[in-house]
Every structure is written in C-alpha cells, then in structure tokens.
Nucleic acid binder design. Structure first.
Length: 605
RNA sequence: CAGGGUGUAGCUCAGCUUGGUAGAGCGUCUGGUUUGGGACCAGAAGGUCGCAGGUUCAAAUCCUGUCUCCCUGACCA
C-alpha cells in the first residue's frame, strides 16, 4: 500500500504500489451500489459516492466510510504523509477529546462559538471535541520546547475533527465529523532557512505536490487570513463549477484570490467633480434598504451611496463609516486594513444612541459625529449622488463630494481606499488593463502564517541566542482529506458515475468476469489479476454471478480507471476486453499478451 | 439562528385531504427460463407507519408535544 520509497524505484510511477498490489473479490467486500440516489442528494459527488457504495449517511454531516471510500482515503493520506515527511515534518497524534480550559486563553471557546462540540464528563467537567489543534499543540510546546536550537519544527497529524456546523450539507463536502491533516510549524524568526517564511514556502510546494499527485485540477489562491492581520494565507481550491467558494483570477498576471480577499486594481478618482444639482430631500418611509429607495426615486442603485456604520475593536472604540457605491458590498477585512485596526459592524442600539440613523446614514454624518470616514473610489467621481438624509424615513439626492464635504476634504479627513468586495469585470490588481474573471472552487487546503497569535495568548516563548525572551512564531497548514475525496468526484465524473485519477482510485483495475461459473473463467481472471498485482496495481475482481449489463453499470458507477472483461469468449480467442473508464464507447478486444502493458499505459495517461 | 419541508419495507416513494388496522418499484431469498449495457415468469421473506400523549368503537391518516433529517438564508480557523 505504501507509496513511500518510490524514489528507489524509478521505473515505477508514483500512482502504483511500490510492492505488489492487492487483489480482492467484489463478493467478499461490501460495495452496496444502488440504482437510485437519496432523494435529497443534489451534488454529483454526493449522489455517486452514495450510489456507488462508498458512503452511507449516519446522521447530519456524519458518514460511514465503506471499504471503497476507505481505500481511497488511505491513498490520499499516504500521499499527504509522503510529501509532509519529505518536507521535513514529523507525524504525531493528538487527542480528539480535550478539556475546554485549553481554549480559555485564546478565547476561542467564545470566538469559535457554537462551532465547538462540547460535552460534560461524569464529574461535570466541560470537555470539547477538537475542531482543530492550535491550542493543544501550543500547550504541548509550552512544556516541550525549551531552546531556540530546536527550531524549525514542523509537526502534523491526520485525524478526525469535529465541528458543529450550523448546516452540514452536500454529502462529504461540509460535514460535522471529517478527516483532516493539520500541521503546525514553530520558529524564532520570520526570515532565513529556519524562519516561518521558508517553512510556509515549503508547505506551499508540498501542497502543490500533494494535489498534483492526487490528480486534481486545482488552483492556489490568496486568501483572507482572518483577524490575524498582515500575515499571508493561501487556499488550495479544486477547480469546479459547483464549488462553494468564488475565486477571481487575472489570466494575464496569474493573480488568483478568494473573492473575500481579492484586491481591485487601480481606479481613477477625484473629489474634484463639479456639482450638477442641488440637494433635495425626499420622503422615503420604511426604506432603509438601497433597492427600495432606488426604485422609489427612480434611480439605479449605482447612483446611490451605501454608508455602513462600523466600530473599531480597541480599548476606546472609534466610529467608522464605510461608504461604497449602492450596488457594491463593503468588505470588512479591507476596511480593517484601511483603518489599520480590526473593525466590526456597529451594534445598532449603541450606534443610534451616538446619533446614527441606521438605514439613513450619509457621509454628512461626519459633520455632527466624530467618525473615521473611509470611501471606496467607485463611490466618488459623480456630480450628484443619492444617499441617506441622516434623518428617519428620508433620503437626499444631489449630494456632491467637493461641495458638501469641502471642510473634511480640506482637512484631509476622508480616506479613500479599496474597501469593497471585488467581482468579475473589476480591474486586475497585477496587470494594467486586464480584468478579473470569476471561477468556482472547493477549498481542500489552507495554509496560514499565524505569527505569534497563539504563542502570545498561551505564553509560548523561548530564549534566543542573545538570551532574550521571544514569542514563538507559528504557521499552520490544513488539508481536508475526506473533503478531497468528494471534491475529486465533483471534479471528475460523467453521467454514469465516478472517474477516478489513478493515484487515489480504490483499485487501479476492475476485472469483470462474465459467466464466472463457466469452466476456467475465474481461473483466468485470477491469473490476470496476479500479473497486474505483480506490477503494483490494485485489482478488484467482480466475480458476482450476475448479468453483464448490471455489472457494466456498476463498473461505471464505482469508476476504476482501467477495466478488463473476461468471459468464455475472450478465453477462447486468447484475448481480453479492455476499456479505460475515461474513454467513451465500448470495450475493445486486445491480445491477452498485451493486457498488462495496456493497463500501464492507460493508468499513466 | 430565521423561514419552509420531511419521517411509512434494505433503497426510492405512494397512501393522509374524506379515520376502518399498509402498498408499488427496485433490492433480497426459492424455483425455472435466460445471459454483452441495470432480463422474464412463478412464489416467498421483510414494516409496533420517527417517538410520546390525546380524540375516537376504531388513528399511518385528526389534535398536542417532542425528536430526526433535508432545503433557502445567516454562519463557515
């Protein structure tokens, strides 16, 4: 089973076993295929994994992995282990069960909220099922890391994780219990061979190797690092139309980013646009939303300003008003970067007390309330805007930045920055004149530069060579192993079933035996299977005494890359029928002597 | 968390409006005829209709409560 040591055997491709492959009989394992899919299964990966007998649901977001699924999962894990080990990481295993106190220092018992599965033991102690292991490993390191000389260090595990998702869905794609590889690296510095940046780059390369070896069509994209700020983060996305995540790409420069993170290229803007009309006030009862007002005023939403009231997350919070064009959405992370400190949507009650008329706020609120005003470039450049009147049930038209905000502009109190969500058609941030295009993907890997977030919170520090106490710098690197399985099906299937890449197919080859009770047929199948296995291929023999049609259908469903058919006819002709799952049409007769070579060629392509 | 649905045989579902003690297809088992893209005939097994309570002579069906699972959204290091 192991794919290690492949470097010692240059003749054998990495998708094959280094040692002999396994041979198993369909009749002696459990592959409960069904003609019909569960009524609620919508996504191909869910439908086919269920119909082909890979998984059966136990509860919401909880699944049995039957023998075929488990074989694939083990192959994915083996590739992950191989690449992680090559990259210098060491495998270990942390517990799934942990005292909730571990989460107190980092406040994730609160921040993670309901996502954390919690339970009580017989003594009434609060306990959690691990959703990820930053706290556990940081706690471990507090007692185990004693010298800077131990750096760099990279530890990983492959383990079942638990997250109480608000809404599990789409089969294995969003589960409450799932298999994940999580790795954590430790450093005393950012730069240099032993630094975080080098480890991050190594992991980036390892992930690229892993998903390439798994046979996936994927993209590495820039991602939002969350409240850590400033640190880099990349997601590895399987390219696929049905994916939950939206990514934006610039084909010219190769820039690719999650839509949550994507920067927008340079836009021309100026405050200095002459007013084209006077301010007029309009009665707009019960219309706090942009769409209602636009319709009422007979305007397009893009002629309006959307002003969102936020507050900084610091000792003495400041009010922030983020202004974007009416048809755009404010990106909280971008506002955070523009302001330089974390921000959050303002609690409505407190904002009202401070003088904001939520739903009817305009940039002019800066005249009466002390605010940090941040404006997106697309919300400038017109002579007349419609916006709130800072008065309940009223909006104004004819708002002009240079005329109506003159004093603020003069004092340089308005910050212009990219603070909105990007979308398809926006200018590329990396190539002049190019535009961003939209793609969909399924996140299967995510790497982070954590920095000192956890080490600071939990007191993980060591003395450096100058005997100075330093917070340990960390990185963390995750792969959704079980999600990779379903993402692969989502990416690679046809109307009849799954089409596995050779490297993670449960078996490389399926031999369909027709009339298995006829003399010599099963023996011929076994002989072929042994020859294939000797060359490193895993073989499944469909030995069921069933009609050919249903066996062909099942073979399409379960999706092994190479199929042989053996029957009294083929034995008579000293031939065998051969078909690659990927190819259209029927099987073709080939000489028995060419069977092994044909399989190897098909698997390699 | 909000809104909407759902739960009946191993699987996919009908029956519920209008109460009378449970059905189909697929699958499984037996026998026979078959055997190259989910065969046919005959027979058989298999369900306390999610759970608890209520109404009624009688409840899968009506009422109340509760749980499950699903969908849309919010949420998703």
């Amino acid at each position: 089973m192991s794919t290690r040591n492949t470097s010692n055997d240059s003749a054998r491709p990495s998708y094959l076993n280094a040692a002999a492959g396994t041979v198993e009989l369909w009749s002696q394992t459990l592959i409960p295929t069904t003609r019909e899919a569960p009524g609620d299964a919508k996504m191909p990966s869910h439908i086919f994994l269920a119909r082909a007998g890979y998984v059966r649901q136990v509860g919401a977001g909880i699944y049995n992995y039957l023998p075929l699924a488990w074989r694939s999962l083990k192959k994915i894990s083996a590739i992950v282990r191989d690449e992680m080990d090559r990259a210098g990481a060491s495998e270990m295993l942390m517990p799934a069960l942990m005292p909730i106190e571990l989460y107190k220092d980092t406040k994730r018992d609160v921040d993670y909220g309901d996502l954390l599965f919690t339970l009580e033991d017989r003594h009434g102690r609060k306990t959690a099922l691990g959703p990820t292991h930053e706290e556990v490993i940081t706690d471990l390191m507090c007692g185990a890391l004693t010298s800077y000389k131990q750096f760099p260090l990279n530890l990983y595990q492959i383990q079942t994780k638990f997250r109480d998702e608000a809404r599990p869905r789409a089969g294995l794609l969003r589960c409450r219990e799932f298999i994940m590889k999580d790795a954590y690296s430790f450093h005393i510095e950012l730069e240099g061979d032993a630094g975080l940046n080098a480890a991050y780059d190594k992991m980036y390369q390892a992930y690229t190797n892993i998903f390439t070896r798994c046979g996936l069509d994927f993209s590495a994209v820039e991602a939002e690092a969350g409240p850590i700020g400033g640190s880099a983060s990349h997601e590895f996305m399987v390219n696929c139309e049905s994916g939950e995540d939206t990514i934006l790409v610039c084909l010219e420069s190769g820039y690719a980013a999650n839509v949550e993170k994507a920067e927008i290229g340079e836009r021309v803007w100026s405050f200095d646009v002459a007013a084209t009309s006077k301010i007029e006030k309009h009665h707009t009862p019960n219309m706090p939303g942009i769409e209602g007002v636009a319709e009422h005023l007979g305007l397009n939403a893009s002629r309006m300003l959307k002003s969102i009231v936020m507050r900084t997350v610091e000792e003495e919070p400041r009010w922030v008003v983020a202004v974007v064009r009416g048809d755009h959405e404010v990106n909280e992370a971008k506002v955070r970067d523009a302001v330089g400190v974390g921000v959050a949507l303002a609690p409505e009650g407190e904002a009202k007390t401070a003088g904001f008329v939520i739903g009817y706020v305009s940039p002019r609120i800066a005249d009466t309330v002390e605010v940090v005003l941040v404006v997106d470039p697309d919300a400038l450049g017109e002579g007349a805007w419609a916006t709130g009147a800072d008065e309940k049930d009223h909006h104004i038209t004819g708002f002009n930045w240079s005329r109506d905000m003159e004093s603020h502009i003069a004092k340089d109190r308005i910050k212009v920055a990219d603070i909105r969500h990007a979308h398809a058609g926006d200018p590329s941030p990396r190539a002049k004149g190019a535009i961003l295009e939209e793609r969909r993907g399924i996140e299967v890997g995510h790497i982070f530069k954590l920095g000192t977030k956890y080490s600071q919170a939990m007191g993980l520090s060591v003395l450096d060579q100058n005997q100075k106490k330093q917070d340990v710098i960390m990185g963390c690197y995750g792969i959704g192993v079980s999600r990779t399985l379903s993402a692969c099906v989502e990416m690679s299937h046809d109307d009849n079933g799954i089409i596995w890449p050779a490297a993670i197919a449960p078996y490389h080859v399926q031999i369909i035996v027709i009339k298995p009770k006829a003399e010599g047929v099963m023996a011929a199948a076994h002989t072929l299977a042994q020859e294939l296995a000797a060359r490193g291929m895993d073989v499944l023999i469909d030995d069921r005494d069933d009609r050919p049609g249903s066996k062909f259908k099942d073979a399409d469903l379960v999706g092994m890359p190479v199929r042989f058919i053996i029957s009294p006819k083929t034995i008579e002709a000293d031939s065998v029928e051969f078909k690659a799952r990927r190819s259209d049409g029927r099987a073709e007769m080939i000489d028995r002597a060419d069977a092994i070579e044909s399989a190897l060629v098909a698997l390699g392509s």
